[in-house]
Design a protein around this nucleic acid. Structure first.
Lengths: 147, 147
DNA sequence: AAAAAAATTGACGTTAACGTTAAATGTAAA
DNA sequence: TTTACATTTAACGTTAACGTCAATTTTTTT
């Protein structure tokens, strides 16, 4: 299950174009995969999952690729808070970084809350429209049956 | 309370730039307001509300301006289903249009459902991250108090 | 090994959604 | 009315996020 994927497979599984995948690597969003001797990119399933997550976050949150980069680097910093890293780095420094991360996360979460509220308001407006349309449809059907 | 607003007021109230407001009019998204004798655009509060709604829909649904146009024309068609219009137009024709509208609305509503699901998944992932960060913070504080 | 299919880099092209600047005209304030 | 400020149109500029060649190499198939 450690299948090696080529760019076309990744494209199909992620729904992105090959160009887009290379582009994401170019701008530092997607970690560069190892290459074959000839230079062909060799991906794994992890890359696909990563791309899927990125895509969702982009779609849903309306993040630009830059914002996504920022976001991802946060996640990495958080992962670095583990094991060996702990023994190397000064706890006070780590604490500062952690505090920063938490702050950013809180901001993001707040932003998401706002988005959810807004999307719900749009949803309810659409539902109202739909009901009106339904009502109009009923009336028309009545009219039509009165002929 | 039928205040007349000039473009700068509208910009301030809507949060959009003057250029954007003119642009939206240019591409047919914002109905052209009346003009003064000299050619200055004279808006009302309604324009502001309209712009706010558009902005939210754009932000939240990730709609392009084209999609927004489509969406708005739907709304208008639906409003035309009223009163005098009814007497003029063939009911069968109206029925067809209504059916179209309902279909599109259903599609949109479905799309929104999907978006909500996705955004919730991102939210929960962020919450997990936040908890992890919190936990790490607690550990660090313990370490620090053990000195 | 030869042919066909896929991947790579490089470079230029594209589109939406405005930003910016300029020159001319209009409106409001003193 | 003069000064100062706002608005208008027109036109060119910009940026992100890719698309689209084209020429070359690799990889796969036969």
């Amino acid at each position: 299950m450690d299948e090696i994927l080529k760019i076309d497979d990744v494209a199909k599984q992620s729904g992105l174009s090959k160009r887009t995948i290379r582009y994401y690597e170019e701008i530092g969003l997607l970690p560069p995969p190892p290459r074959s001797k000839g230079g062909t990119r060799l991906y794994t399933q992890e890359h696909v999952e990563f791309l899927k997550k990125i895509t969702i976050a982009k779609e849903v949150l309306g993040f630009t690729l830059q914002e996504l980069q920022h976001f991802i680097s946060l996640r990495e910093t958080l992962e670095n808070q583990r094991a060996d890293y702990r023994k190397v780095t000064d706890p006070k420094e780590r604490k500062v970084k952690l505090a920063e991360i938490i702050e950013v996360l809180d901001d993001q979460l707040e932003m998401i809350e706002e988005k959810i509220e807004k999307i719900l308001s749009v949803q309810s407006e659409l539902k109202t429209l739909r009901e009106r349309a339904q009502a109009a449809m009923v009336k028309i059907n009545q009219e039509l049956s009165n002929l």
